[in-house]
Design a binder for these strands. Sequence first.
DNA 1: CGCATTGGTTCAATCGATTGAACTGTGTAA
DNA 2: TTACACAGTTCAATCGATTGAACCAATGCG
Lengths: 348, 348
Amino acid sequence: MANRPTLKTIADRVGVTVSAVSLALRDDPRISRATRERIQQAAEALGYVYNRHAAGLRRGDSGTVAVCLNDLSNPFFTEFLGHMEARFREADRMMLFCHAHETPSIQARFIRQMAEHGAAGLILVPVAGTTREDLDGPQVRHLRDFPLVLISRDVADTGFDRVINDDELGIRLLFDHLHDAGHRRFAWLGGGGDTSTARDRERSFRQRMEAAGLPVAAETIHHGPTSLAFGDAMLERLLALPTPPTAIVCFSDIIAFGVLAACYRHGLRPGVDLSVTGFDDMGAAAYSAPALTSVRVRTDVIGQRASELLLARMAGDRHPPVREVVPPELVVRASSGPPPASLVETPG
Amino acid sequence: MANRPTLKTIADRVGVTVSAVSLALRDDPRISRATRERIQQAAEALGYVYNRHAAGLRRGDSGTVAVCLNDLSNPFFTEFLGHMEARFREADRMMLFCHAHETPSIQARFIRQMAEHGAAGLILVPVAGTTREDLDGPQVRHLRDFPLVLISRDVADTGFDRVINDDELGIRLLFDHLHDAGHRRFAWLGGGGDTSTARDRERSFRQRMEAAGLPVAAETIHHGPTSLAFGDAMLERLLALPTPPTAIVCFSDIIAFGVLAACYRHGLRPGVDLSVTGFDDMGAAAYSAPALTSVRVRTDVIGQRASELLLARMAGDRHPPVREVVPPELVVRASSGPPPASLVETPG
DNA sequence: CGCATTGGTTCAATCGATTGAACTGTGTAA
DNA sequence: TTACACAGTTCAATCGATTGAACCAATGCG
């Protein structure tokens, strides 16, 4: 800030008023060509930097949007960030960024501060446990009619736009792939957090199990953090069961990678000795050892749609809140295959 | 922005002036307890949101810092982001974020725009090819005396603070570990970008080779992007050589993961049949298959130091520019070991 | 009683840019 | 010659908050 030149500085140097400078720098035809050029040269020479917030104060838009992610250590979410960043750059908007770290208080604070900073809109991957109250309650009155789009995770009854993955479809594709390959003994390594994603994926898994006439026993479902360590540790526990599963369905790629690491240590060949699947299909899934069967969540589509919706809202669009559900795709790779022949239950 | 309440709104409701409201909301003792409370309640009731930029206009600091990363898809850099975000949150500063995508024009644009948005400081991981000119030339006159800290990658002679990893030390630790284990046939899979990191690591590698009396042949050094695909593809080429290397030293973990993936497909056991090492030691390195020997770059230390330096500069510190070099640590895991017995050259 | 003090509040200028209205001087038409 | 249009520029209010100075009333002191 160290006393940078302002419109006044330029005006004094050229010998006109700030109004003339303001108009000239924005190429307003009201200022003559000659004067305009003198002004623009002076600005250049002085190293003038436009003050967007002073302008925004008058005009009513600071030109920023806010983005709040729950977890930066998960590349899945940074993929979103990348896609949105690109779209907002196109729209000439800067991004105010927050890493909420799955912590409600950090998220709450950001929701206040981004408003104080004049953000014109907010894209939010709500942290686990986010309630309707948090986005709609008396503490956040300023969010009323505020352009806000939720992505990836849903929060019911908030009246905001949402763009989310079709988790039900994803799990169905995955389960059917495994079931068709002959698997009957499944384990679910699930997101422990209180998120729509964790709930929806697990519910779908249970539904598919039921539909296939398979029992969902206590040792079928396991909850834990979305971390490599969790997947790694869980494989050990699953192997210790009297009848270990032949297919391990993981809530996310991250967990699956942990399982693959443990498999490697045990000399187990995923895709041959047992099947392991992820969910999200982040970039690394194609290069794990072995490559991971997963469900490709369209972070590009979701990120772009969310950006579009937000920009539309910021432009004054007043349509009723939408809930867009983006279909994912099954990506079969080496980590899944038929169960080992010795373990296939012969009918009768 | 949709006509939110302002100080005036509150003032009218309570029956005082905006000055009184301004003072009251900041708990100034000049306003009586009674009035202060009435004002604060009214603010609460109206859902008032502080306008930091209007205030900043008067006070001269908008409360934001800018952060520009070269590559978001590399978790190594998001680790930095996480550490800095935490520090800036503590300091009550919001982050204006940019993903430069290794693209100079995007970086240049951000350097201008963050200034327009009144950022009080900038942390930059310069994109490949960034020159002294880009940070010090006539196009960026506003960066003169601007609080700016470079991290991870250095740009010479710019007069800015820098916090970087000791790449020379890192490579030395890695090389000596492999050499001591008996390896004599090395390959280098290097960063193709024009960055100090790529240069310093490769130079160190060459120096150690020379010091060990080993020839650096054409098939020893290979350049390519920092991607899984590059590492994956390179293993194929290295295996096709008449005398393949026994140790593959990768510029970064990302490349090494690609190599591991290819090894898996070929049935090669890293750490047994050949050794593979990474650099950065990002979180996933402990959970690859097998776990990756790497050099732990202290993203936490670097991120924190950079934040501290920046905050100090923003507070008016005028010390001459510093260049802090943070020592990394060797982390030996399963992906490296002695060369296969059959390949160890017997002396004489 | 008169004057100074103090507590509580308002006044008014300010930060940097924007913009509708007003002004100035030139050229053209009546 | 007067009136009028018009191009080019300036005036002045405005956005929302801050702050040193001014103001006013009530109290304290001599």
